[in-house]
């Protein structure tokens, strides 16, 4: 461990703003991309399932009315 205390760790030898700004934006962007991609997939799966269910209902209704 190079730093003596937590306060020193956050200060980063006076460069705290720049170091934590870089790490913060990096993690934020990576996390945003990951969540967005996962959300896209979930949303599409949900849409597809809803579409199939609707088709199923239409088919059943048509069979009943015949």
């Amino acid at each position: 461990m190079h730093f003596q205390s937590w306060a020193e760790f956050w200060a980063m030898g006076g460069y705290g703003l720049f170091v934590w700004l870089s790490f913060g934006t990096t993690y934020f962007l990576l996390l945003a991309l990951l969540c967005y991609s996962q959300l896209q997939q979930k949303q599409f799966k949900r849409q597809l399932a809803a579409k199939l269910a609707r088709e199923q209902r239409v088919k059943q209704y048509q069979e009943q009315s015949d």
């Binding site: 190079h2 980063m12 030898g13 460069y15 170091v19």
Partner: peptide, 13 residues
Amino acid sequence: LAFTPPDYQQGDS
């Protein structure tokens, strides 16, 4: 971030 020594020119940046 925590377990390497700082650079002799650039410090912790």
